[in-house]
């Protein structure tokens, strides 16, 4: 069987079904584009830091024995509020708003965010505003010398108390 195309002499200007020159050219073009894309990913690897410089997330604090239940105690320089409950157990609640990271204000009734108006109760539950989640609770541990070690790197379920 003779193919209609094979009966006529083809020239370079006639359209081929699979133009070989175009195939090679397109393959080269797409490979260089792919190479460029991979190179872009490699370039973006640099600004994605591997080591995050940050101070230690653990700190040691003395919580006064006389601290009344439910009264906030705020260690200087840390965005954490410490409380004692009726039994004298200690718990730590983060002051970083779960909405957009502002530092909430503490009073005995709860926490208030100045940036977008989120309100939390004294256990960190959301009462009002845009915060999507309750305030985080951090792990606390009693050291042998009677001070308390708060670990801001370790969140614990709400209601976890120590001592």
């Amino acid at each position: 069987m003779t193919h209609p195309e094979s009966t006529q002499p083809t020239s370079r200007l006639d359209p081929e079904r699979v133009p070989r020159r175009d195939f090679l050219g397109l393959a080269a073009l797409w490979s260089s584009l792919a190479a460029g894309f991979v190179a872009l990913l490699g370039i973006l690897r640099l600004p994605k830091a591997a080591v995050l410089p940050a101070p230690s997330r653990k700190f040691r604090v003395e919580v006064p024995e006389s601290l009344a239940p439910g009264v906030p105690f705020e260690p200087a320089g840390r965005n954490v509020t410490l409380f004692r409950d009726q039994q004298g157990s200690v718990y730590a609640i983060s002051k970083v708003c779960t909405h957009l990271g502002c530092i909430v204000r503490t009073d005995p009734a709860g926490f208030h965010c100045p940036c977008h108006g989120s309100n939390f109760d004294s256990l960190g539950e959301v009462l009002k505003g845009p915060a999507p989640a309750p305030l985080a609770w951090f792990a606390v541990q009693r050291a042998s010398d009677g001070t308390w070690i708060v670990n801001e790197g370790q969140t614990v379920p709400q209601g976890t108390k120590e001592g």
């Binding site: 994605k48 830091a49 995050l52 410089p53 940050a54």
Partner: peptide
């Protein structure tokens, strides 16, 4: 990932 690329750290600082 977006926050890490913007801040270069997990806190707002010199990076």
């Amino acid at each position: 990932l977006q926050k890490l690329l913007l801040l270069g750290s997990d806190e707002v600082g010199e990076e």
